[in-house]
Design a protein around this nucleic acid. Structure first.
Lengths: 242, 242
DNA sequence: CGGGCCCTTGAAGGCCCTCAACGGAGGTGG
DNA sequence: CCACCTCCGTTGAGGGCCTTCAAGGGCCCG
């Protein structure tokens, strides 16, 4: 279960899915953090990689003027901090109460030297991060408020494995969503309200919605505001390709 | 010159700078491409990694509706395609006439198995990509047109090693800049004009400017539009931190 | 009950996009 | 050599989307 024997070739550019570093953390003690606690700050010397057992984490960076961007939200099973050099590139804060474990840089290095599989997992993880970052750049540069929010909601539905009747959990506050999607809290609020009034969402409480129509959500996430015909779409394609 | 002997431990999370894969490409033949040519398309099966010898490349992704984002511009010495899984994540197109070489996935795999240093370089490269992507997300989510353009121009000045009197080269067309910064070509044009009239830039031709005041450029890249005092800045900081 | 935090809603304004027209540069063919 | 075309860049006018500023309500806790 743990590893291939030394010297066995392991392809670095394979098509495998998400990395699985779980075995590395099996022997590490479980720690806890309260809502609002900071696991580490952007710029801190990186000593450990973290793995979330339960709870939610926001990962964020700050501009010199204090504005903030949340590069992502993490939950149970996710890893934090694999993309550091010797300092962390971002801060990690607990959204709600958290249980997690950590593995020291030193031990991680040793495991990577010994176990080729982990090196491949590491690469796979970094590529996933790059892909996610690029997708997010697309969202930020070209999508409007409703598309951004629907894209985000859809992601949360999918990683929860939810179906149409499923409940959509938004453990973070509106300001977190806003700073993730490059919007203001007012626009987040207004857009959520609009989605409810359109019948796409059904409000449960502040942090939970039911998805009335996942199809409508998907449509709103990727497409033009409305009445968008295939002709116009093809025309734009043609204009770009050459 | 080529590598450490097998088994020598190489730290994976060290602080080294940009990766140096140049030795891998020394034996590869040089190829050429005309301006406008496409090295590979997003979604193509990834067979090779490329290294630019001369010329400029744009790296881009497309939305389903045909809108485009240019994730970055590459020049001599840069590598393309290291972050693929088994398909390319983006397209790469020649901006001007290009010379480059490539190394096959197969051979690259072998080198990575044999030479620990290259594995470290690969990680370092991927982390650089993640860092750049996050910086760009910051730009796209929170900066206005002038800040975006100044940030971009400043990057180009710095990678050219230019001083105040240096010439700023913009080999790409305005549409490329627009799709990189999440703007329209009109806004790019208007903002450039404004920077010229402010005396920050001096126009040479369409694709070259002189930077009259690099300090002004840096100020405009990161700060508030204008007359921004420290008091206001500290106030915003305080508002965010708690 | 008062205070703080979070969320919502309204009103006004600004920034940037959209649409449109024009001019220059470069290439091609008459 | 010039007419013509296309691509690229600039500039102007108008409008829409989102931000900013402001107020108010719900919830929790001391």
């Amino acid at each position: 279960m743990l590893a291939l024997s030394h010297g066995t070739p392991v392809p670095y550019f394979q098509s495998k899915g998400a990395a699985d570093f779980a075995p590395l953390f099996l022997r590490q003690p479980t720690e806890i953090a309260r809502a609002g606690a900071t696991l580490f700050f952007e710029g801190d010397v990186a000593k450990s990689v973290f793995r979330i057992a339960s709870g939610n984490v926001r990962v964020c960076r700050l501009l010199p003027d204090g504005r903030r961007i949340i590069t992502g939200f993490l939950a149970a099973g996710d890893l934090i901090g694999l993309s550091f050099r010797n300092k962390y590139l971002f801060s990690a804060e607990a959204i709600d109460d958290l249980t997690f474990s950590r593995i020291g840089k030193r031990l991680l290095e040793e495991e990577l030297q010994l176990v080729p599989e982990f090196r491949v997992h590491l690469l796979s993880h970094l590529r996933d991060e790059i892909t996610a970052a690029q997708d997010h750049m697309l969202l930020l540069s070209h999508k409007n408020a409703e598309q951004r929010l629907c894209t985000f909601l859809l992601q949360r539905v999918e990683l929860a494995g939810g179906r149409d009747g499923g409940v959509l959990a938004l453990p973070m506050v509106r300001a977190d969503i806003a700073d993730h999607l490059g919007m203001t809290i007012e626009t987040v609020s207004r857009t959520l309200t609009r989605l409810v009034s359109k019948g796409v969402l059904l409000p449960a409480d502040r942090h939970q919605f039911k998805v009335a129509s996942r199809a409508a959500l998907a449509r709103a996430a990727d497409e033009e505001p409305d009445d968008d015909d295939e002709v116009a779409r093809e025309r734009r394609y043609a204009g770009r390709r050459f």
